[in-house]
Nucleic acid binder design. Sequence first.
DNA 1: AAGACGGGGTC
DNA 2: GACCCAGTCTT
Length: 349
Amino acid sequence: MNFTRTIIHWYSINKRSLPWRETQNPYKIWLSEIILQQTQVKQGLPYYEAFVSKYPTIFKLANAPESEVLKLWQGLGYYSRARNLHTTAKYIVNELQGEFPNTYKDIIKLKGVGDYTASAIASICFNEVTAVVDGNVYRALSRYFNINTPINSTKGAKEFKILAQELIDKTQPATFNQAIMEFGAKQCKPKNPNCQNCPLNTSCLALSKQKIDQLPVKLKTAKAQKKHFNFLVFISNDGKTLLEKREGKGIWQNLYQFPLIETEKSTNEKILRNTLKNNVLLNNLKFELTLYNSKPIVHKLSHQHLYTKFWIITVENINAESISIKDINHYPVPILIENFIESFNFDLV
DNA sequence: AAGACGGGGTC
DNA sequence: GACCCAGTCTT
């Protein structure tokens, strides 16, 4: 059984029709690949359409303000992708005269582009013979060849890259790369793969050894920490509120949020009121404090579980740089904040 | 080499 | 709750 020929034949029959499969434009392929990092096609597709529509060329993207790019990215997660996308667009326009680099070696130098994305762009746009290794490829290869090396180890990354590079069809690298990924996504799925109806089921080593559900092997990662977030939702008599930009290292960098008080444990109104007395935003101001959600909203991220309370603070006026509540939807915010804004009807206040 | 970085989906 | 997704960057 020839793995490469079989995969390509399977793809010719089973490939989905997707917009980025209709082009070799490096800007669009790059955009699609960044969006699809750690993101399923179903989730990324509407974002791809929105970006292409709003920024048809890399020049349009480069000339947009970052907050606008982040707003369009809002809800997709891993926001460094959007910041790097914007940085790289500006770099290509300003330093490379808008000309996208056309070899793996040069493409991988771009910010936000690693081995996978550089291989995808180089093969799809420029027919370079360089194999992609994403989650789908790890799974398909580890099963078919019964490879037990952890895929998230340095050794695994090297090993699978070499194997994929041996298997790639040198005459049609773009087709092979997309074929093996599609095969992993739709046939050799993580759970309940369709082995009964698989063109490789007579030669798949994991299947013959009944090890399908044990592959690929992955090193365990630390589990999420609990955090307690208290967002202060100011509402002034003249229809204003406070929004702050998240700076620094952690989550949601350059997105906006209501002023945040993080506590060691779950807090209550009495304790919070006491804390607020010394808060610069409230010194010497009269305010009313009410808890919006009686039970904390649990927002789960990869490495943190956020137990969140939204506190409504009504004041006469605000002694800080405030924004009009009617403009609140212009700011990029984490989905946790967006969900609150949608459920809390500011118009009724 | 190990962690951080989101949000949606499946089982 | 555990795991996964067209991964990359920082420490």
